[in-house]
Amino acid sequence: MTDILIMVLSTLGAIFILIASIGIVRMPDFYTRLSITIKAATLGIGCILAAAAIHFSEFSTTTKVIAIIFFLFITSPVAAFLIARTAYITGIKLWDKSIVDELQDRYDNNNNIPNNRCKEE
């Protein structure tokens, strides 16, 4: 029973990590790459570490695994937010096919994206 659970969890984790890595290679611009990769990889690593916790099933190991997962889930949004903001300030452009950019008037970047292509209902 635990063997099957370990196999399922590690397979799920490996698939999520593979998706994240394919995404980081073939997505068109920096922001879409960032918004795909960090979360999928975090979820995949959570799955793999949960498989490790099930395999050992000791109190100390489970505590360690919960600490790592909690830490990853707290820090990865903060890191993504910081690096996205820095990238926007340093002037990395959005993808050409982006619809709307409402952050444009806060910082004076020339992203050349018209501000009204989105349906306003």
Binding site: Y31, L34, S35, I36, K39, A40, T42, F73, I74, S76, P77, A80, F81, A84, R85, Y88, L103, R106
Partner: peptide
Amino acid sequence: LTNIIALTPGTMVMD
């Protein structure tokens, strides 16, 4: 709220 938005793939808080 920012953490929850950032953890769902496809959305990300910029500023």
